[in-house]
Amino acid sequence: MSTLKKAVAAIKDKKSLVVAYFSARSSHRNLDFGAAIIKATSHDEYDIRKSRIVFQWILASPNNIYPLVGALSKRMRKTRSWVVAIKGLMLMHDLIHCKIPVVEKMGRLPFDLSTFIDGHSRLGKPKGFDIFIRRYFVFLDERGAIWFEEENKNAEDSPLMVQKLLKLRKWQILLDMLLKIKPLADDMKVYLIFEAMDRVVIEIFDVYSRICSEIAEVLLEVHSIGKLQASMALEILRTAMTQREELSRYIEFCKEYGVLKANEVITVTEIPEEDVKELERIINGEEEKQMAVVVREEHNASVEHRETKETLKTIITYKWEAFDDDINIPGEIPDLISF
Rank of each mutant, 00 (worst) to 15 (best):
H299E: 15
H299I: 00
E280D: 07
H299S: 10
N284V: 06
K261D: 06
L336I: 14
V265A: 10
Q229D: 13
I96F: 14
S42Q: 02
K164C: 07
T314W: 02
M161N: 07
I131R: 10
K99I: 01
E217K: 14
D326A: 06
I65Q: 07
H120W: 04
N30T: 12
N328C: 05
A40H: 05
K227D: 05
R249D: 15
K12P: 00
E203Q: 14
L165P: 13
K12L: 04
A40K: 08
C254T: 03
M197T: 01
V83P: 00
I315S: 05
V102Q: 12
Q172N: 11
R29C: 04
H223L: 09
A322E: 09
E221D: 12
W320Q: 06
E214N: 09
S51W: 01
I236L: 12
I271N: 05
H43L: 04
E221V: 09
A36Y: 02
M197A: 01
S158V: 13
A71S: 14
R281S: 13
D275P: 03
N284Q: 11
P159S: 01
D47T: 08
I211W: 01
E270V: 10
A60N: 13
L165T: 08
Q290T: 15
R49D: 12
I333V: 12
W171P: 00
G258T: 09
I146T: 08
D275E: 10
